[in-house]
Computed example of a mutant assay.
Amino acid sequence: MNNQNKKLVNELSKLLTGGGAHASLKDALANLPVNLLGEKPHGLPYSIWQLVEHIRIAQWDMLNFCIDPSHKSPKWPDEYWPKENAPKNESDWKDAINQINNDRDEFISVIEKGDLYEPISGGNGQTLLQEALQMADHTAYHTAEIIVIRRLLGAWKK
Score class of each variant (00 low, 15 high):
147 I>Q: 08
76 W>Y: 13
70 S>N: 15
60 W>R: 15
91 S>H: 11
45 P>H: 09
147 I>T: 12
134 Q>K: 08
155 A>H: 02
61 D>W: 00
138 H>R: 08
97 I>N: 02
6 K>V: 12
93 W>I: 10
69 P>V: 01
129 L>G: 02
26 K>G: 14
151 R>G: 02
23 A>I: 09
70 S>C: 12
137 D>R: 07
22 H>T: 10
116 L>S: 10
138 H>K: 06
121 S>Q: 12
155 A>E: 13
73 S>N: 12
57 I>P: 07
59 Q>W: 00
84 E>S: 11
36 L>E: 04
79 E>C: 02
132 A>T: 01
29 L>Y: 05
71 H>P: 01
150 R>E: 13
90 E>F: 05
144 A>D: 08
85 N>Q: 14
126 Q>M: 14
75 K>R: 06
136 A>D: 05
156 W>D: 15
42 H>W: 07
9 V>Y: 06
119 P>S: 11
68 D>K: 12
10 N>L: 04
102 N>D: 07
70 S>T: 14
122 G>C: 01
111 I>G: 03
40 K>D: 10
76 W>P: 05
121 S>G: 03
101 N>G: 08
119 P>I: 05
152 L>N: 07
60 W>H: 15
146 I>D: 13
9 V>A: 07
72 K>M: 14
36 L>P: 03
31 N>P: 03
86 A>V: 02
127 T>A: 11
15 L>I: 11
91 S>Y: 06
149 I>L: 08
73 S>H: 12
16 L>G: 12
41 P>E: 14
7 K>T: 11
107 F>P: 00
88 K>H: 07
105 D>M: 04
25 L>F: 00
99 Q>P: 00
58 A>W: 06
57 I>Y: 01
129 L>H: 04
38 G>P: 11
10 N>A: 05
78 D>K: 13
105 D>E: 06
60 W>N: 15
113 K>Y: 02
130 Q>Y: 06
152 L>A: 04
145 E>W: 01
31 N>K: 13
140 A>D: 03
